[in-house]
């Protein structure tokens, strides 16, 4: 009986290691290509394509990205600021909403869930939203506009609601209530502690969304020193695309400023770098048994 179980476990584990290893390789391979290309001379990329090891090694891609280092550093700063502030604020609102919406004694929880979910189905399109942001809220060229629209998404709220529901048994809330704790205290003292894996996940997603965002900068920011990193980089890549699409008849010519393939790749690396370090930090919370102990203690 026991032996049989171990046999199964062994089989399961060998499957697990094989599959995960294969998946990892599939994910890593293109990334290595990008890294390699970022260190390749541009002419060599245009002529010979990508290789796992650069054919002609060169740092020109990075040199071009960093030609105005203060721009990149500035953009990094803006991105870090918006990411941190946005993620923290967003987490606060989302956990509160998720907590309220999963409370069985909150009678309108379904109505409000629908109120929130409905916004993923219907939207007024870009123009009215743009008018709202620029004309009524007057958010052009502000840090607020980089943070506000990304604070919450219906998906993350509902996800949070589910995480909390499965992590916090109703009985705990009930007994806390009997002990005289008010609703906010329950949220603050118990719910937050118990749903760390969920909070870590949602926080990671929020941070990723802020980190990867270029659209808000593109629409609402005119001041170059307020560009977010992704937009700063994305814009350089777009300039290439733009030039490819402009026929000779337009007479548009941007001279020596055209960024190159190796620059594109260098940018992809630069933009990825720091956030990759965030993930291992989040991983800490994906360990079983951590949560219950935290509350009991």
């Amino acid at each position: 009986m026991k032996i049989k179980d171990e046999k199964y476990t062994g089989l399961f584990h060998s499957i697990a290691y094989t599959v995960i290893l294969l998946a990892t390789i599939a994910c890593l391979f293109p990334f290595i290509l990008v890294i390699s290309a970022s260190f390749t001379q541009n002419d060599s990329i245009v002529k010979d394509g990508f290789h796992l090891i650069p054919k002609v090694f060169s740092l020109e891609g990075y040199r071009l990205v960093f030609r105005f280092p203060e721009h990149i550093l500035n953009a990094y700063g803006v991105t870090v600021l918006t990411t941190v502030v946005g993620t923290l604020l967003g987490l606060l609102f989302i956990t509160m909403a998720g907590y309220v919406l999963q409370r069985k004694d909150f009678q309108y929880r379904n109505a409000f869930s629908f109120f929130i979910y409905f916004t993923t189905l219907f939207g007024g399109g870009l123009v009215p939203w743009y008018i709202m942001m620029t004309k009524y809220l007057n958010l052009m060229d502000t840090y607020t506009v980089l943070i506000f629209p990304g604070l919450m998404t219906p998906f993350l709220i509902i996800l949070m609601k589910n995480f909390i529901r499965s992590a916090v048994p109703d009985e705990i809330i009930e007994s806390a209530k009997i002990d005289g704790a008010n609703d906010f205290k329950i949220y603050y003292r118990i719910v937050l502690q118990l749903s760390m894996p969920g909070i870590a996940t949602v926080g990671l997603f929020l941070a990723l969304a802020y980190w990867n965002d270029w659209f808000l900068s593109s629409l609402f920011i005119n001041k170059q020193d307020m560009y977010q990193l992704q937009f700063y980089l994305y814009n350089v890549i777009n300039t290439i695309q733009f030039i490819t699409q402009m026929g000779a008849g337009t007479g548009v010519s941007l001279g020596g400023d055209i960024p190159t393939e190796s620059t594109k790749m260098a940018m992809a690396i630069i933009a990825t770098g720091p956030i990759v370090f965030l993930y291992p930090f989040v991983q800490r919370y994906f360990v079983k048994g951590l949560t219950i102990g935290a509350v009991k203690g």
Partner: peptide, 15 residues
């Protein structure tokens, strides 16, 4: 492996 599986998320479709 967990971290590596997250890497493709950062590669934009342009790239």
């Amino acid at each position: 492996t967990q971290s590596i599986m997250f890497l493709p998320y950062f590669i934009s479709f342009v790239i």
